[in-house]
Design a protein around this nucleic acid. Structure first.
Lengths: 227, 227
DNA sequence: CGGTACTGTGACAATCCCGTAACGCCCCGG
DNA sequence: CCGGGGCGTTACGGGATTGTCACAGTACCG
């Protein structure tokens, strides 16, 4: 299921929203400031960002604008949360690159509905769509992988690893990032374990010759190449 | 390696934890009460604080709350150690501003793993926008360099060096500044080492003719020219 | 036009990092 | 209860990377 980054400094609201989203089946991380959020985005590549307008330090709207400008969130949609209800603010928010705008007070139900709507709009078949690269195909629904038509067998962890790589192509991830994204945020595992699963994944991909897509970047981590 | 402040009044636990952390390569200081810890923090600026819930005098959780409120530890993560295992306590602990929570009894291995996880979550992983100059392009996200479309290969240090130069163009840096910014603050290496890596970087850039962008300023250092 | 301080260059040993194989553990199904 | 598959950890070895040095080359001074 999609993972959502909630950027909100007020604990009460944060917990209410987090609970509602988690009940709806989303994975939720949170940050309390723009700086926190920066780090969290780099670490976990959320599918959607819920952003409070009023934040300590850099304001939500400035942050949204900066994200769009830096193209960090090329494909990550942003929803603004705010107590300000004016038409003018709404426009400012959308201008800044937000994909939607939810005025406080809002009901958890309404928020979840908007999140769903935005995810549906932005990623038509959120997360569950098959991915294909250079003849290597992965289908999350049937949980199958094939290379040039031939079946490819692998374990569950390798499957999740490959899925993550294929949905974030051509980016280097260090071992800690992979652990967070594929194993889960609060799981405590040695970093070298990543190497072993990369190796197992490569071995699984070798028969169809797709193993060279998964590249080592010395001193940095691994990358699923698109070239 | 990171330095850790361990606040724990029971000698047996303290020694076990300290040994485990030191074996994992961390520098460990310890304090036996909140007052001790106050002094130690001001003195040594640890990267992480391990805090026992039950302490003589001010309790660990009060101390954690005070630290966060006084913003002494705005960016120093805190892990609470405690015998109390209730869910309610856990929430109280995280509410007080702790970054993680380890219930006793715990294995040294688990503790070390949690310390690692918190540190890697908190310490920022820099990833940024691509930079381009006169056909030379560097993308920190995919960790790739290309000159006029052709791939350019180099080692990790050369990559960091080039990234630094490209994000600070047309400025002269002496060798000490480059060591600080590219190698890291308190690393001792010979200044002439910079020369060698500049040379290696030039060699890597030579095939596409971009090596002349990296200029020597005699008696001052090096500069990445924009002209 | 020397001389001198500074920089470029190639080689080398130490170290680091990664690929690989092997091991033990846990969970499940038979 | 046993067997097997998946998983995380560890040890080892080889190759890439790194820091240092010695020497060659070069700019700048008087």
């Amino acid at each position: 299921m999609a993972s959502i980054l909630l950027v909100e400094d007020e604990t009460a609201i944060r917990e209410m929203v987090a609970m509602a989203l988690e009940r709806a089946g989303y994975r939720v991380r949170h940050a309390e400031s723009a700086e926190d959020a920066d780090a969290a985005i780099r670490l976990s590549q959320p599918d959607l960002i819920l952003l409070d307008w009023m934040l300590p330090g850099e304001s939500g709207i400035d942050f949204a604008r900066r994200l769009k400008r830096e193209r960090v969130t090329r494909e990550i949609p942003v929803i603004l949360l705010t107590a300000r209800g004016e038409e003018a603010d709404r426009i400012r928010g959308l201008d800044a690159g937000a994909d939607d705008y939810v005025p406080k007070p809002f009901s958890p139900r309404e928020l979840v509905a908007r999140v769903k709507a935005v995810l549906r709009r932005v990623q038509p078949t959120a997360g569950e769509a098959p991915v294909e690269m250079r003849g290597l195909m992965l289908d999350p629904v049937s949980h199958r992988v094939s290379g040039d038509g031939r079946k490819v067998e692998m374990g569950p962890t390798e499957f999740r690893l490959l899925h993550f790589f294929m949905t974030h192509p051509d980016r280097v991830f260090n071992r800690a990032q992979l652990l967070d994204n594929v194993w889960g945020a609060n799981v405590y595992v040695e970093e070298r374990t990543v190497d072993v699963h990369v190796r197992r994944l490569r071995k699984a991909l070798a028969p169809t010759g797709h193993d060279d897509l998964l590249q080592t970047v010395r001193g940095a981590g691994y990358r699923f190449s698109i070239d």
